[in-house]
Amino acid sequence: MAKHSKNRGWWLEHAEHLRPDYADHIALEDDATYIREWQPVMVPGLLQTQAYAEAVVAGGPHYLAPERIAELVKVRLARQAKIEEGGASYTVILWEAVLAHPLVRPEVHQEQLLAVLEVAQRKNVTVQVLPFSAGVLAGYSSAFYSFSFDEEPTVEAVAMDNLRGTSVLEGAEDLAAYANAYDVLRSAALAPDASAQLIRGILRSLKEDAS
């Protein structure tokens, strides 16, 4: 982690509430110039609204005290400053199920979809959707994040979440494999404009079902 660290700081104020591996993930994210993410389960932390973040953090498999939930949500929202301030180029591919099948209350999910559409309009953000029609490709890999730290978008680290924490890969063969996996997923995903159109259609359907 040390070789990538340029400006560690703000998250250390919350260190008592963070696992060391999560702190390392944030450090990588904070130093990155390019961030790419594949997410087949839920809306990514870098795009989550406060209500969505509260729901998914509180709804995890382990009990968390209310004060720790509040701190973790605060950290998750603070991470988004990297994207909001244009500090990195962020590209995310979401499986259509993330959008079409709410994990949280309907009103929270609808608010979240609106937020995704809004953030997707930023010049440094690209949101693409892998449609159901892509078939088994959605199971090609579990969620992962790749990071680049220079002017070129060469993958230099890959992070994956699991029940034991966050694992970081930096071996050349691992990086090449995940770079290739992302290219395959991106090629099969809808273009950004078509992805936004699909999200708007899902949002309309959810509103109609709720009425």
Score class of each variant (00 low, 15 high):
47 L>H: 01
1 M>N: 09
173 E>M: 09
102 P>Y: 06
24 D>S: 12
78 A>C: 07
6 K>V: 13
113 L>P: 01
166 T>Q: 09
119 V>E: 04
161 D>L: 06
76 R>C: 02
64 L>D: 01
77 L>T: 07
16 E>T: 14
72 L>P: 00
125 V>W: 00
204 R>Q: 12
158 V>Q: 01
37 E>H: 12
71 E>Y: 04
111 E>W: 02
51 A>M: 03
81 A>N: 15
166 T>F: 02
153 P>S: 10
113 L>T: 03
109 H>Q: 07
20 P>L: 09
11 W>R: 06
8 R>I: 09
150 D>S: 12
127 V>G: 00
18 L>N: 08
7 N>V: 11
164 R>T: 10
184 V>T: 13
35 I>V: 15
80 Q>V: 02
73 V>Q: 01
128 Q>R: 14
59 G>H: 03
55 A>M: 08
112 Q>Y: 05
83 I>P: 04
103 L>R: 02
128 Q>K: 10
183 D>Y: 08
186 R>N: 11
149 F>K: 00
127 V>E: 01
69 I>Y: 04
116 V>M: 10
60 G>E: 11
110 Q>W: 03
60 G>P: 04
182 Y>M: 03
124 N>E: 10
25 H>I: 01
192 P>E: 07
168 V>T: 11
94 L>Y: 06
176 A>N: 07
112 Q>N: 09
25 H>E: 08
171 G>M: 12
97 A>W: 09
202 I>K: 01
202 I>G: 03
12 L>Q: 15
112 Q>R: 04
44 P>M: 05
82 K>I: 12
195 S>M: 01
19 R>L: 15
160 M>L: 14
15 A>C: 07
